[in-house]
Design a binder for these strands. Structure first.
Lengths: 305, 305
DNA sequence: TCCATTGACTGACTTTAGTCAGGCAATGGA
DNA sequence: TCCATTGCCTGACTAAAGTCAGTCAATGGA
């Protein structure tokens, strides 16, 4: 890795740590431990389930419980059992809590505003642009791709979103039953595999691989959530599926796609897939692609999983 | 302030806090509290005075003392009295400490590298560029401009650097004695004022204001350290000096400059100064400028101090 | 020579953050 | 109806971080 690039990242970290520290101090300005303020903020105007909080903040269950108790005795938070599942507890802000939330919000705004006001307008614009870039790319780097069971709730949610999108984009809609099948059971080893891309615990994309014949696999259910597009997730998903394919002993991958999915076609071409004659009679397919995978010899520096 | 800009800053803070937290956890990988690792890192290969450490980390004297003691008993740090002032203590790394330092350094490199490797090369370049921008602009925003005594050590250092630069850049050098005077005593109220720009406690620029006649002042000793140029410090220094001038009851500011200082001329023009005939016989001056300041009515939103 | 100041250290705290082992109640499938 | 699982809570900790008053030695100017 490039020495200068690494230095830049490290310098950035140092500068930003100091700067963020200053913002944290602002939170503390409310005479309350940082963790409590963050909690108040995460609960937000709509309230939140405790389990969701635990996920987001990645904090010990006992610790979280105590923090919530503290906010409750201070009168900022009210706890109640969830409607659907009485084991799940839901935290909501009381009126007083909402007032405190608004105050935090105001202070965060003020801190951000103060930072920007120090700068000349042109510098300000550049800072905002650069910050947006950094934020977007850090989010991209934080995406992980893992094998998942296609029957899981989050997998199903991805697949459903994918199917809904096809229905919306194809001329004349889309009926999965009339297309080539890719049932969840077909995307589980040894018949196939299913990968989910997650960003801070939330599924933001998926991709499936289905064995067609000995040595030959097919990519299915390639999808990225609109909120997470432009982060290079699809590209990484393809690379990850190819890695899975190699591990499963496949040497050829195929896929079909619809003419309306222009970005998808560009993506496959860019990833080294070449257009071939129809290899199936999928009524929704207009283009068919294939890629021969590198043999059992793994490339040393696999380009980003 | 622009709502969207503020939102960007806040989103940036949230994303980056999570990301930086991950890096911090890496420091912790050495089985040592974060503060100790940071300390080890700040002491660095060359050692450092304890008072300098206290400044940089903004930490309680007692706490720092204890942290140093801990590193000392672990054999990483050696303490000795400073040569010049036996009250000042100096911390240096032992051989073992240097080894530990190198290890931290390696880990920081690895963490930065890991982050970059997740991304596609084009994304990587954009991230590095954007990080460099953010870092530079945050540094710019962290610069403070305050009134200082021109006889202080850090003020003197700025003035000396300024004079040295003139000597290097003017054709035929520069001899202050043969130019218009601006002795430290002339830059102290009520005869004048002297401002120093500081970045994390280090002086990175200066500017003086000397009363020439009732209502008329002259800008002197405008200088920004090469390491801090391009941050808009000179612009802010002028604005701050003008504010001082107004507070001192001046309504006109003048200045002279040498034809070799091209950037300076552009800067003054941009700040609203207009070229006028020579108002003095400074042998080093080729251009003379003047600006009429807004009257006693202070503008409501003073553009960045 | 005196003495206020500076710089660091010590003792005696408090607060915040975090961990871990259990416990109890709700849930959902066998 | 049983029972493993899930979700949250409590008690009992530890470690890290930070604070504050007071001490002591070196320093530099009156």
């Amino acid at each position: 890795m490039d020495r200068a690039a690494i230095d830049h990242v490290r310098r950035f970290n140092r500068t930003v740590t100091a700067h963020i520290g200053a913002l944290d101090a602002d939170y503390l300005g409310r005479g309350r431990p940082l963790a409590e303020s963050r909690l108040l903020y995460e609960i937000g105007r709509d309230g939140i389930d405790v389990r969701e909080l635990r996920m987001r903040l990645a904090v010990d269950s006992g610790y979280l419980s105590r923090l919530l108790r503290a906010l409750e005795t201070q009168g900022f938070v009210a706890m109640q059992a969830s409607r659907e599942d009485a084991r799940v507890r839901r935290a909501t802000l009381t009126r007083q809590g909402r007032r405190e939330f608004d105050e935090l919000d105001r202070r965060s705004d003020a801190a951000a505003s103060r930072l920007l006001e120090t700068l000349a307008p042109s510098q300000r614009d550049r800072l905002v642009t650069a910050m947006a870039d950094v934020e977007r790319l850090l989010r991209a780097a934080a995406v992980t791709i893992d094998v998942a069971d296609p029957r899981d709730a989050s997998s199903r949610a991805c697949i459903d979103a994918y199917l809904a999108e096809l229905a919306a984009r194809f001329e004349g809609g889309f009926d999965p039953a009339r297309s080539v099948s890719a049932d969840p059971d077909e995307l589980v080893p040894p018949a196939g595999v299913f990968l989910v891309a997650s960003l801070t615990g939330v599924a933001v994309g998926c991709g499936g691989l289905k064995v067609l014949a000995p040595g030959v696999g097919e990519l299915k259910r390639m999808w990225v959530a609109p909120s997470a597009r432009g982060l290079g997730i699809a590209r990484r998903m393809i690379a990850a599926l190819e890695e899975q394919a190699v591990a499963m002993g496949l040497d050829t991958l195929r896929l079909d796609t619809n003419r309306r999915l222009v970005e998808a076609r560009a993506l496959y071409l860019d990833a080294g897939y070449v257009e071939i004659p129809a290899y199936n009679d999928n009524r929704y397919a207009d283009h068919w692609f294939e890629k021969r995978l590198a043999g059992p010899v793994r490339r040393r520096r696999s380009r980003r999983l």
